[in-house]
């Protein structure tokens, strides 16, 4: 993939005409995008195929007929909407919690000048590194003492107290905002919280949207957290359900592909609606121009 990139860009320098440039750029994009999409096509089209059709030799992309049997069977097999509801509750709180707590902390690390700040920020970085495997048992015992096991709380409460990845991300954005912008407000006597809320936050919409999306994906796909902290079918999430459809000897391909499609499609639609807003829409127009 990369070698094509280079080759093509060298070619482009040789003949820098606008049209050729575009053709090549689209060519590269389409080529890479197709590579990225193949698994997804298999996933989506596969959800309409029977188990035997999936493995037919030679392989055929399109199903013989678009059968919704897998979908019907999946809704019979798992309480999809209960799992969806549970997932959405966890996801919703995760997004809200991350946005509030991480933007506050990031403001403290990026916009305020205080002694020892960068050293304290190193702690943020350090906490990113520790693998969850070693914190899992102490955390479980802690949550257990609090009586939180078997509730959504272990999956919700911590995100209201900051996530190092998101703090780091938002800090990088806040740091980039020139001091002059907030300086004027400060001279006018605006409080730090006011500056945070009415100047920085609106300007950081792309970054915040990014955090929201990451918080979404993180909790949407989280498997080990729900597995360890939740108990009982009625609390399970969709990603947990995905791992339960598969048994070691029988991957249950057709149903897995179906659930996978159902987990991807709504998000995809949502993403389609939001993406314009969250990357393209705000070119930080007021800031840099």
């Amino acid at each position: 993939m990369n070698s094509t990139n280079q080759k093509v860009s060298r070619k482009r320098r040789i003949s820098p005409s606008e049209i050729l440039f575009k053709v090549i750029m689209y060519g590269i994009l389409v080529a890479i995008a197709v590579c990225f999409l193949i698994p997804f096509m298999f996933l989506f089209l596969g959800s309409f195929k029977g188990e035997s059709e999936l493995f037919r030799v030679p392989f055929k992309w399109l199903p013989d007929r678009f059968s919704f049997d897998n979908y019907v069977k999946m809704f019979q097999t798992i309480p999809f909407f209960t799992y969806l509801r549970n997932t959405l509750i966890i996801v919703g709180f995760n997004i809200a919690g991350s946005l509030i707590s991480c933007s506050l902390a990031a403001y403290g690390f990026a916009r305020l000048h205080w002694t020892g700040r960068d050293k304290v920020f190193m702690i943020v970085i350090v906490t990113m590194i520790l693998p969850y495997q070693v914190t899992l048992v102490p955390l479980f015992l802690l949550f257990n003492k609090l009586g939180w096991i078997g509730t959504f709380l272990p999956l919700i409460v911590p995100c209201f107290f900051g996530n190092p990845f998101f703090i780091f991300l938002l800090r990088q954005f806040f740091v980039g905002v020139p001091d002059e912008i907030t300086y004027a407000a400060r001279v006018d006597g605006a409080s730090e919280f006011r500056i945070y809320l009415s100047i920085l936050m609106p300007m950081a919409k792309p970054a915040l949207a990014t955090v929201a999306i990451f918080a979404f994906i993180r909790s949407w796909n989280d498997f080990i957290g729900p597995l360890v902290f939740l108990s009982g079918d009625e609390l399970y999430t969709l990603s947990l359900a995905a791992s339960m459809l598969k048994s070691p000897l029988n991957p249950n391909w057709a149903l897995l592909l179906t659930l996978g499609s159902l987990m991807v499609l709504p998000v995809l639609i949502l993403f389609f609606i939001l993406q314009k807003y969250f990357i393209q829409g705000i070119a930080m127009s007021g800031v840099k121009g």
């Binding site: 479980f140 078997g150 597995l227 360890v228 791992s243 339960m244």
Partner: peptide, 19 residues
Amino acid sequence: PDGAGVNNGKLLSAIAGGT
């Protein structure tokens, strides 16, 4: 999943926590 939590620490944590 994962062998009744045997293979992923769930059963272990639960036994340690008395749950």
